[in-house]
Each structure stands twice: as structure tokens, then as C-alpha cells.
């Protein structure tokens, strides 16, 4: 991240439907939205903001496959190469008995891997520096923020007043 401070102008809306129409209008006027902050996930917002679909599930599949293989190869190695033992008259390579642990490690690798990936790509961890504009965003306000460098501030203010923003404020990040 750059050390240079940026000026931000943001507006707070009271309702997610008003927010959605504001975002649509911003798109029509070709205003460059920095980000939108909401108290809960608002459905239908992602395509308006041009956010591509999350690819987290692909990562999850790969982690899971690694888990399956780890469990399978390890148990196979232990019982056919490293220290073969006959349990209950079964063959050394007892595939049905390997299935439960293979399944568990698939889920474990996939979940832990995805959670770590999620926090890493979002840049979230204890003490991370995120952009926090207003305390009401996690409560009941829906926020659209613009960077004001190289932008006509008056045009943005007009945008906010015409789309029904409850309050408009500035911040330095």
C-alpha cells in the first residue's frame, strides 16, 4: 500500500434498495466508486460493482484433493511398505478401512486452506490496517465511497444529494 494519504468522500444511505439505485446511477454517470461498505451482504450488488465471481471454491477443491491424496498415500505407504501388519485377517492394502480418514483429511485440508486463503486475500488479520470510514457502517448505514484526488468534488456531492444519501462526509486514509 502507498504511504501517500488519500482524500475520500463518502455518503451514507439508510436503505439497501436506495443504495442499489445509487450504485446504478453512479455507473450511468461513469463515477469511479472506490468501494461500497454495508452492514450485511446485499444481494445483487456484486454484478453492479463489476465484481467477478469468487474463485475460492476452486482453491477449496485443490486443497481437498491434496488432503485426499495425503491420507491415501500415507496410509498405503505405512501399511504396504513401511510396516505391514495384518489386522483382523484383512489384506495389507485395506481400501475400505482407509476411506474414513481420507474423507476427514479432505474436509480438513479444504476448510483450513480456504479459511486461510480467505483472510489472506482480504487482507484481514488481527491488527490489520483496513479502511474504516464510519462506525455506523457495521450497524445500519450503507456507504458509497469515492477517492477525491483528480475528481470534481462538487459533481460527487451533487450525486449524493440526488440519490438520497442521508449524510456526506470526508475522510483521509
Amino acid at each position: 500500500m502507498e504511504n501517500q494519504n488519500k482524500e475520500v468522500l463518502y455518503g451514507l444511505y439508510d436503505d439497501e434498495e436506495v443504495l442499489m439505485s445509487a450504485v446504478k446511477k453512479a455507473n450511468e454517470e461513469h463515477l469511479d466508486i472506490m468501494d461500497v461498505y454495508t452492514p450485511f451482504p446485499v444481494h445483487g450488488l456484486d454484478p453492479l460493482l463489476g465484481l467477478s465471481e469468487s474463485r475460492l471454491h476452486i482453491a477449496g477443491f485443490i486443497y481437498g484433493a491434496i488432503g485426499t491424496l495425503t491420507a491415501f498415500l500415507f496410509m498405503t505407504w505405512v501399511f504396504t511398505r513401511d510396516w505391514p501388519i495384518i489386522f483382523g485377517g484383512k489384506p495389507y492394502f485395506s481400501f475400505p478401512a482407509f476411506v474414513p480418514i481420507m474423507f476427514e483429511l479432505t474436509v480438513l485440508f479444504s476448510s483450513v486452506g480456504m479459511v486461510i486463503t480467505f483472510y489472506t486475500i482480504c487482507g484481514l488479520w488481527p491488527g490489520s490496517k483496513t479502511i474504516r470510514l464510519n462506525d455506523r457502517i457495521t450497524d445500519d448505514k450503507f456507504c458509497i465511497a469515492f477517492e477525491t484526488d483528480n475528481t470534481d468534488v462538487q459533481k460527487l456531492k451533487d450525486f449524493f444529494s440526488s440519490t438520497g444519501a442521508g449524510s456526506v462526509e470526508t475522510a483521509t486514509i
Binding site: 468501494d35 461500497v36 461498505y37 454495508t38 452492514p39 450485511f40 451482504p41 446485499v42 450488488l45 456484486d46 460493482l49 465484481l51 469468487s54 475460492l56 471454491h57 480467505f118 483472510y119 486475500i121 482480504c122 484481514l124 488479520w125 488481527p126 491488527g127 490489520s128 490496517k129 483496513t130 479502511i131 474504516r132 470510514l133 457502517i137 457495521t138 456507504c143
Partner: peptide, 15 residues
């Protein structure tokens, strides 16, 4: 984890 409610974070969170 300094959560801020960004739209992209919510999208990934839901996913």
C-alpha cells in the same frame, strides 16, 4: 480482524 464491511469482502465471506 479489523473487518470493515467492504462489498468484496462480503462476497468472499458469503462464498
Amino acid at each position: 480482524f479489523s473487518w470493515n464491511g467492504s462489498a468484496k469482502h462480503w462476497q468472499r465471506w458469503e462464498s
